[in-house]
């Protein structure tokens, strides 16, 4: 029997038969990609607020916090994942930890910039109305820093979606796994499909956060 002469056999870049025959693998990879990204960004958001607040409150803390984030951000992703290998082994936790460090960097910088942009008059007005330090932070400063923080969150999320692919080196890379195995077998349709899906996820996540940001900060919409 002659081998089937479809786009899979001809190893074409765009291949409908690939989409239909590997649907389960693709869905699984996309889900893993989303899980890794969401877990990393969520952890980073929680971890980013305290250092940003500390750097805002105590002048001496700003230098070390920003310096550390610059150093973390300079380390290439492959090296970052590799440095975490002794701690986490070949696990999804390793990929998440690496992504957290990058997202943290972007978030701390943006939250700090947002906090610094809160006008001194606003702060004084809140104090004059009897706001204590904690209430000042929670009810005035953090909400006003939200637009800058959301901008940071969007950048961090889009970067994380793209960086998850590097996790393929430890076998936990979501769509990156498909790109990696597609490279080793010269499977063009798989590499292109997975790459396009990565970009689609990044754009979708960005738009989702843009919408969420608008909902969370209704006061910024009036001017636009």
């Amino acid at each position: 029997m002659a081998p089937p002469d479809d786009c899979l056999a001809r190893n074409e870049w765009i291949c409908g038969a690939y989409l239909s025959s590997r649907r389960e693998i693709l869905v699984e990879a996309v889900l893993q990609h989303l899980q890794l990204t969401a877990a990393a960004v969520a952890v980073a958001v929680v971890l980013a607020v305290p250092p940003a607040l500390a750097a805002r409150r105590w002048r001496w803390a700003a230098g070390p916090v920003l310096g550390l984030t610059t150093i973390l951000y300079t380390i290439p992703s492959l090296a970052m994942f590799s440095l975490l290998l002794p701690l986490y082994g070949l696990s999804a936790a390793l990929v998440i930890a690496g992504l957290v460090l990058y997202s943290l960097t972007l978030l701390v910088r943006n939250i700090l910039a947002g906090l610094r942009a809160v006008p001194e008059e606003t702060r004084q007005a809140a104090r004059g109305m009897g706001y204590g330090p904690l209430r000042l932070v929670l009810a005035v400063e953090l909400p006003l820093a939200l637009p800058a923080a959301m901008a940071g969150l969007r950048i961090a999320t889009v970067s994380a979606v793209s960086l998850v692919t590097v996790g393929a080196v430890v076998g936990h890379g979501g769509l990156g796994n498909l790109i990696y195995s597609g490279m080793n077998t010269y499977f063009k349709a798989q590499v292109l499909t997975a790459s396009v899906l990565c970009v689609v996820i990044a754009v979708a996540a960005d738009l989702l956060l843009l919408g969420a940001g608008r909902l969370l900060t209704p006061w910024t919409r009036r001017r636009a």
């Binding site: 950048i155 889009v158 970067s159 979606v161 793209s162 960086l163 692919t165 590097v166 393929a168 990156g176 790109i179 990696y180 597609g182 490279m183 590499v191 292109l192 997975a194 790459s195 990565c198 970009v199 990044a202 754009v203 960005d206």
Partner: peptide, 11 residues
């Protein structure tokens, strides 16, 4: 930023 470096390298 949205396009994965690794994907472009392999493509």
């Amino acid at each position: 930023r949205a396009v994965p470096t690794f994907a472009v390298l392999v493509l």
